[in-house]
């Protein structure tokens, strides 16, 4: 299980990386490499050159900038997990990150790497989508931003142009009326989810004023279940609204079959998660 041979360059600037991206036949960016290295080892990809952006300090760091938390593309999962800023400003991410892989992988795997891989069953793309994050990307025309909700196109497919590099993610800082929920169903701890759900809700008393339900593992990309959300928005959670939301998932999700679950089971599990997370959020409000 050895990769095909490849050239390797550790770049010292974003510009150098972009130049190489434009010049090479089959370039591939490597950062933490925790997903890419196995792909290469299994010879599922044959890049002509790996462009290692690991040394670009501009892509590091986790920093609060007003009402967004900016997470550098090279921030390690372990850094995100240990960050007091993340815990305070983006509690949904704090909850999700512990589900990502295992300690040794979290020490090296990066936030940007997970986002750019766009695995439909991964946690971080779903969190970014649920929260309406924005991605800063750098390319030959300089910096631009892409909303997370327009970034994930299909399995392993993103809106990044071939010569663009993800620089950072801006995640909105939680406001007091927001509530979050996160749950995933995986065969074992650290495995990719069969189905997962990241929830952002803004509550007005016991009413769901806003609701973003992002399912992962339930479609070829992280998906906002808008029909399900509409069934609850503006209302309290009752057996009827809950059931309406669950029923609406059929229109929202495009579940695929794999070894763990067929489409019907995925849809069913998505419904279970939806009920549980909404009940948790609504239950806490009622207690207050």
């Amino acid at each position: 299980m050895k990769p095909y041979p490849f050239e390797y360059t550790r770049v010292s600037s974003l510009e150098e990386a972009v130049t190489l991206l434009q010049r090479e036949d089959e370039p591939r960016i490597i950062a933490g490499g925790q997903s890419l290295v196995p792909i290469l080892a299994m010879r599922l990809a044959a890049p002509s050159r790996l462009i290692d952006i690991g040394g670009l300090s501009a892509l590091r760091g986790i920093e609060r900038r007003g009402d967004v938390l900016r997470i550098g593309a090279l921030a390690r999962h372990a850094e995100v997990m240990a960050s007091a800023e993340v815990a305070e400003a983006v509690p949904l991410l704090a909850r999700a990150i512990s589900h990502v892989a295992h300690p040794a992988v979290r020490n090296r795997g990066t936030f940007g790497g997970s986002v750019c891989l766009a695995d439909p069953a991964a946690e971080l793309p779903a969190v970014c989508t649920a929260l309406g994050a924005t991605f800063e990307v750098f390319g030959s025309d300089g910096l631009r931003t892409i909303p997370a909700r327009e970034f994930f196109l299909d399995i392993y497919e993103t809106a990044l142009a071939p010569d663009e590099i993800l620089v950072a993610a801006q995640l909105p800082v939680a406001c007091p009326k927001e509530r979050f929920g996160f749950e995933e169903i995986a065969r074992r701890h650290g495995d990719f989810a069969i189905v997962g759900l990241a929830v952002r809700a803004r509550m007005e008393g016991t009413l769901f004023a806003e609701l973003d339900l992002c399912f992962f593992g339930a479609s070829p990309r992280p998906v906002l279940a808008q029909n399900a959300a509409r069934a609850v928005i503006g209302q309290e959670l009752t057996d009827e609204t809950q059931q309406a939301a669950v029923s609406a998932l059929t229109a929202d999700l495009d579940p695929q079959e794999d070894a763990q679950a067929d489409a019907e089971m995925r849809l069913h599990l998505a419904g279970v998660l939806l009920k549980r997370r909404l009940a948790e959020i609504a239950g806490k409000e009622r207690q207050q």
């Binding site: 065969r187 074992r188 701890h189 650290g190 495995d191 990719f192 070894a259």
Partner: peptide, 10 residues
């Protein structure tokens, strides 16, 4: 990743 063996927490 496909052949699931029990790990410590399982």
């Amino acid at each position: 990743a496909d052949y699931l063996v029990p790990m410590a927490s399982d």
